Computed example of a mutant assay.
Amino acid sequence: MTKINVLYASTEGNTISFVEKLKSITEANGDEFSSRLIGDETDYANETEPYIAIVPTYLNGGTGTGPEVTEIFTNALGDYISFGRNSAYLKGIVGSGNRNFNVQFNLTGLRYAQKFGVPMLFAYELRGSQFDAEKVYNIIKPLFGE
């Protein structure tokens, strides 16, 4: 049995919906699933097991991908990953966004992957589909061993 650990940010419920789909698929395959919503009021803790981060894209400013574009609503997750040695346990990023925003789609996920030196594993739109969650499960399961 594989244990899959997920840390995530969610503001409007889209990421929560995706995490629930991923949990369902993980447990249907006989694996264990653990997830934790990280927000502004989350106390910092030292992670001791591998995990992936699921991060939505909420941006402010600019019309492209330059430095004037800043992340909003997901900073608590980035700060949590940066705390102590937590980034050492991060295996990769799954990102989301709205394709209507063109080059800004999944920009936060791409920035997290670059900042923490981990792979950008997958990106889905809004709440993601069941098919997206199945793809993510198949991508991340090997990262957690058997």
Rank of each mutant, 00 (worst) to 15 (best):
T42L: 08
Y124E: 04
G66F: 01
N29V: 10
G109T: 06
R85N: 15
Y44E: 14
Y44S: 14
F101L: 08
M120A: 11
K21C: 04
A53C: 15
G84L: 14
N14V: 11
Y44L: 14
G117R: 07
G61K: 01
S129C: 03
G109V: 04
E68I: 02
S17M: 07
S35I: 09
N60D: 13
K21L: 09
M120F: 10
S87Y: 08
N86Q: 11
E41P: 01
E41S: 13
R111Y: 00
M120L: 13
V19S: 05
I140A: 02
F116T: 09
D43A: 15
P67D: 15
Y51R: 12
E27V: 14
V103F: 07
G30L: 07
K23V: 08
Y80K: 05
D43K: 14
E20P: 04
N86G: 08
L59M: 04
E68S: 05
S24T: 15
N100H: 09
R127A: 13
I54F: 05
Q114Y: 11
A45R: 14
V55D: 04
S87R: 12
K115D: 09
G62V: 04
Q104Y: 00
V94S: 02
T65G: 02
G64L: 03
E125A: 02
E68W: 00
P50C: 11
T26N: 06
N138P: 11
G64A: 06
G66H: 02
G62H: 06
E12K: 10
F144T: 07
N98Q: 02
T42D: 02
L90Q: 07
K23G: 10
I93T: 03
A76V: 12
V118M: 05
A133N: 09
G92R: 03
E20N: 15
T70Q: 11
F33G: 04
G84I: 02
A88R: 11
T42I: 09
I139A: 12
P56D: 11
G84T: 10
D79T: 10
A133W: 00
F73S: 14
T26Q: 07
I16W: 10
F122Q: 07
D43G: 08
A88D: 14
N100E: 13
L107F: 01
Y80F: 15
E32V: 13
G109K: 01
G64K: 10
E134S: 09
T74Y: 01
P67V: 08
S34Q: 12
E12C: 13
N102P: 02
D132T: 04
A113M: 07
V136C: 05
E47M: 13
F105M: 04
S35A: 14
G117Q: 04
F105E: 04
F18H: 01
F131N: 10
I72S: 06
N14R: 12
D40F: 09
E12D: 15
S35Y: 06
L77Y: 01
K115W: 05
D79Q: 12
L59I: 04
A28I: 03
A53M: 11
V19D: 01
G92K: 00
I16F: 12
I139V: 13
P50E: 12
